[in-house]
Design a binder for these strands. Structure first.
Lengths: 164, 164
DNA sequence: CCTTAACTTCACAAATTTCTGAAGGAAGCG
DNA sequence: CGCTTCCTTCAGAAATTTGTGAAGTTAAGG
């Protein structure tokens, strides 16, 4: 028999990790990055080493490496070198990843570029051109408003969780 | 030599369609749905038949069928039966697709469920539990705020484009 | 400076996804 | 009521993606 209400029972943690990762996968995140991210989110310190990730998720060092590269690229995790060691720690910063979520910005920007080009090439005075122009307008509106939304969140958060 | 500034020059249209579709693909949309959607967006009436789509994109009827099913499922296009014909028209409604974009709701809901479960199973008083709880809080906040954002867009839009 | 630990890169095998051609319905039209 | 048109479904070929083992790179520690 295990302890009554085991804290950090590996199986309980694993169940959450896999379940949450599955949701991310369904939203379009590649499997390995999703699992690594979920594992970090469920860790006590918010950091794990490559070795810990590999062991916990039963994946090769290569898979960890690939997943972390992906996550770092989209700013969902940061990498830290432990001073005086070859070990690296990967960390999920709450603030950081909220921002990343709304930072589809780069993507939106390219959508906007493509739309602008479309308006020009199809003609701003054609029905199709007008449709594209309005769509472009929508994105520009959203983009601007999302910034405000994040501001409101930070305010709300500080009040509730007590600032920095 | 073709006309000076040809309206709806197929090649010009095609260039936009493929370029915009490529951006969607990069954002995670499957290729065929992306191309079909872009083609509809660039059409003058905002509607195309299955045959027109197949010809314009050089894809089989089966591919059109699959793409449309996908797009309809995520509410990016609607299907209309031409009365007295076996032909179907597929349409992109501007309003409709803006809403769909922000309607990651179903997905977010499941994320929230998974997070709630995590808070409970890992313990609300553990560091990991607290992290999950704050994340959950963020999503709940956003979800609520996005509704407001869409409201502001509709207001802005009516003013600019002159209402329904 | 040599050894060794830790991560990364690369080539390939396996699994998954994507698109097609062909066969199978539904619905207008005679 | 049968013919025809248009769409869908399905099995499978082709392409893409994913994860691994093995070799390579960097830097700590003796």
């Amino acid at each position: 028999m295990t302890e009554p209400t085991t804290r950090r029972d590996p199986e309980t943690v694993s169940r959450f990790v896999e379940h949450f990762a599955a949701q991310l996968v369904e939203a379009g995140v590649p499997r390995m990055p999703a699992r690594v991210f979920a594992a970090l989110l469920a860790s006590d310190t918010g950091t794990l080493t490559s070795a810990e990730l590999g062991e916990q998720l039963r994946i090769s060092p290569a898979a960890v490496s690939g997943a972390v590269r992906y996550l770092a690229q989209v700013h969902l995790v940061s990498r830290e070198r432990e001073p005086g060691s070859r070990r690296e720690r990967y960390r999920v910063h709450s603030d950081q990843w909220y921002e990343a979520l709304t930072n589809r910005e780069a993507i939106i920007k390219r959508w906007e570029d493509a739309l602008r080009e479309g308006v020009t090439s199809l003609g701003a005075d054609t029905p199709a051109g007008r449709r594209l122009a309005e769509t472009l307008d929508f994105f520009e509106f959203i983009e601007q408003d999302v910034a405000g939304m994040m501001g409101r969140w930070r305010t709300y958060r500080e009040q509730k969780y007590g600032g920095a």
